[in-house]
Design a protein around this nucleic acid. Structure first.
Length: 288
DNA sequence: TAAACGTGGGA
DNA sequence: TTCCCAAGTTT
């Protein structure tokens, strides 16, 4: 395989965006919070919320000392509010089991709530400077095109980690840059819809380009329609709780909120099952 | 492995 | 208007 790491690192030195979590001394907690927020939410939407979150809770123990409801409320409209709950739980775990210090070890990070293969390695690599393969959706697309010669990546797999590992240089500091560079390239140049191959540092090495940009099999499933979905109902109910917090909301008020009674009940039940809501008497509220 | 899980912006 | 896409994780 050609050396992709060298051109990737060189390109990153000149093209990297100035993002908050890339500032020197941003800290492991800041990195961890940013990675939670960036799970499926675009960078531009995350930035203002990240600043507010870290101002309010500068360390894991600060968040752990507050109620989960406050985390869900501060999460606002970032989407997938379970992440707020998970981040709060992770903060409690960090306080109780790790002396309030964000772990450095990947296995330990993986044991925390809401942290999976991507986030664990992102923290170990970007916050602590260790050498591990970090693979997100951007990196998977870059690898699919440059290495495999495909138009888009297949379903996520543990093999993605091996593919990235094979590309990393031995030098620890450089490996960190290459991880970031692969993500950055996928985010800004090797994009899903309209890749800018004319500006790509890997153009001369890219297998997809060399093959003439073939249309390859796309096994991805279409995202379900959101309008009128169960997710939409959940979102509407939770928004009501969020907007009212810390005041609980009368069940009757929630019921008036969504027209389909069966769907509304499913939403309420599933929110309770997920720990995002609590019912008491005829009231519904965020978790305490 | 696949389905579930929010929300908003751009094409 | 509709569809696609977004630094994933959990069950």
């Amino acid at each position: 395989m050609q050396d992709l790491a060298t051109p990737l690192a060189a390109w990153y030195a000149t093209a990297a965006r100035d993002l908050p979590w890339r500032r020197p001394g941003f800290g492991a907690w800041g990195t961890l919070v940013s990675e939670f927020m960036l799970q499926q939410t675009p960078v531009a939407r995350v930035i203002p919320h990240l600043q507010a979150w870290l101002s309010r809770w500068p360390a894991p123990a600060d968040l752990a000392a507050d109620a989960p409801a406050e985390a869900v409320r501060q999460w606002a409209n970032l989407g997938y509010p379970r992440r707020a709950l998970w981040l709060h739980r992770a903060a409690v775990e960090i306080r109780d089991r790790h002396d309030g210090v964000v772990p450095r070890d990947v296995e330990t990070l993986l044991s925390l709530t809401g942290i999976g293969d991507y986030t664990a390695r992102a923290v170990a690599v970007f916050a602590y400077g260790d050498r591990h393969p970090v693979v997100d959706t951007n990196t998977r697309r870059v690898l699919a095109r440059a290495v495999e010669g495909r138009a888009q990546s297949g379903p996520p797999s543990r093999r993605d980690l091996d593919a990235m590992e094979a590309l990393l240089p031995a030098d620890v500091a450089t490996s960190t840059v290459v991880n970031a560079a692969a993500m950055e390239l996928g985010a800004t140049v090797c994009t899903a819809r309209a890749p800018r191959c004319d500006a790509c540092p890997l153009a001369s090495a890219c297998a997809w380009r060399a093959a003439g940009y073939p249309v390859t099999e796309d096994r991805r499933r279409r995202q379900a329609r959101y309008e009128g979905s169960d997710r939409h109902a959940r979102g509407a109910v939770l928004r009501t709780l969020r907007d009212a917090a810390p005041r609980p909301v009368a069940l009757a008020e929630v019921i008036a909120q969504w027209p389909d009674p069966a769907q509304r009940d499913r939403a309420i039940d599933s929110l309770i099952a997920d720990g995002l809501a609590e019912a008491s008497e005829e009231l519904l509220r965020l978790p305490r």
